[in-house]
């Protein structure tokens, strides 16, 4: 009895040592060796047959205990080995997570277009529709219908590129004003239009001049449009573009197609009006020109200036972008150096 006991306990001890193998195959060998049909546990079971019931019971319990312990040890070791294998695989698969990505490189919208899109969206939100006109414009729409007859001294302000005696590359987007008014009647009021586009002037290209540039013009016609309405719109625009705490200042000026005419300054965003190099110590930065639409412009396009009035405002897109981002040279916009353009990704 005790001899068999001792054998079993020795068997258990050896099995528990052998279980601690490092590979799955030898672990399986261990399992077969001890728990298989020809293994010592089965042998011991067979041996029980000839025992006294009392002894058989006691021995049977012992055999089962030993079998259970060996099986559990094998199972545990199997789990351990599997987890070690996974850990090993994961360790092998470890990446340098700071290496560069596989690019899903996107491009970006040109900064001038971003400004155009932004201002267009701003005005659309107030019910302005976007209109466009020809870039090769007639003298009639570019000048005459805007109260700029031949020999008007103001034509000096914008030397132009003519393609023939009657047509030129438009010097401003204001021709769209004349074309829009002409196509509408007083029954179609109010007119609210925003007009972005390319314009051209005979300027030598340098840091602040470009023979081609972009303009955005907004205009509105209805009954009783006042300077106060213009000022309200300008203030909203300035704050949209340059920050909620910006102030605007209107200075009297002259444009043939508006009366009164104003130049619009916005308080310098960098120094808050205290004076700095951006605003040339004045606290203010000129951003655009505006005014109430000249009665001659309304009359020429079939509106009665006694009944209706309107305002128009126009700005240089490059200037807005240059002010907003501190861009020092207007030529950057047209040279298209990727190192410049890439900065406008968002």
């Amino acid at each position: 009895m005790s001899e068999q006991h001792t054998l079993l306990e020795e068997l258990l001890a050896t099995a528990l040592v052998e279980v601690q193998t490092d590979d799955l195959k030898s672990l399986n060998d261990v399992r077969v060796k001890y728990l298989g049909k020809k293994g010592p546990i089965q042998e011991a079971m067979k041996a029980m047959k000839g025992m006294e019931p009392e002894a058989r019971k006691e021995f049977g319990q012992l055999v089962n205990t030993v079998k259970g312990q060996i099986a559990a040890a094998v199972e545990n070791r199997l789990l351990e080995l599997e987890q070690a294998a996974i850990a090993q695989r994961l360790a092998n698969e470890t990446l340098d997570i700071t290496l560069p990505a596989q690019n899903l490189h996107t491009g970006s919208i040109h900064p001038l277009q971003q400004v155009v899109d932004d201002i267009t969206a701003f005005f659309r939100s107030m019910g302005y529709e976007a209109a466009e006109g020809p870039e090769v414009e007639t003298d009639f729409y570019n000048f005459e219908m805007l109260n700029l007859p031949h020999d008007h001294p103001a034509r000096d302000m914008q030397d132009s590129f003519y393609v023939d005696p009657h047509r030129l590359l438009r010097t401003h987007t204001s021709g769209v004003q004349a074309r829009t008014f002409e196509s509408r009647t007083e029954a179609q009021l109010p007119i609210k239009v925003i007009c972005p586009g390319k314009v051209y002037r005979r300027d030598d290209d340098d840091a602040t001049h470009s023979h081609q540039f972009m303009q955005i013009e907004a205009f509105i016609v209805d009954e009783n449009i006042s300077m106060a309405n213009l000022k309200g719109t300008l203030q909203a625009l300035a704050r949209h573009l340059f920050g909620a705490d910006r102030e605007i200042r209107l200075r009297p000026s002259f444009f043939p197609f508006t009366e009164p005419s104003v130049e619009v300054d916005v308080s310098c965003a960098k120094c808050n009006g205290a004076g700095c190099n951006v605003c040339k110590q004045t606290g203010w930065i000129e951003i655009l020109g505006a005014g109430l639409i000249h009665p001659n412009v309304l009359t020429m396009t079939g509106f009665d200036p006694q009944k209706v009035s309107g305002f128009a405002l126009g700005m240089g897109v490059e200037r807005i972008a240059m002010l907003k981002y501190g861009i020092e040279d207007i030529r950057h916009f047209y040279v298209n150096d990727l190192r410049f353009l890439n900065q406008f990704k968002r």
Binding site: R124, M126, K192, D222, A228, K231, G232, T233, L234, L250
Partner: peptide, 20 residues
Amino acid sequence: GFDNIPAILPSLEITPVQPT
């Protein structure tokens, strides 16, 4: 003084606007 003129947004009839 244009500074003394109030800033008031126009209040007009609402019309839907669509891009072309």
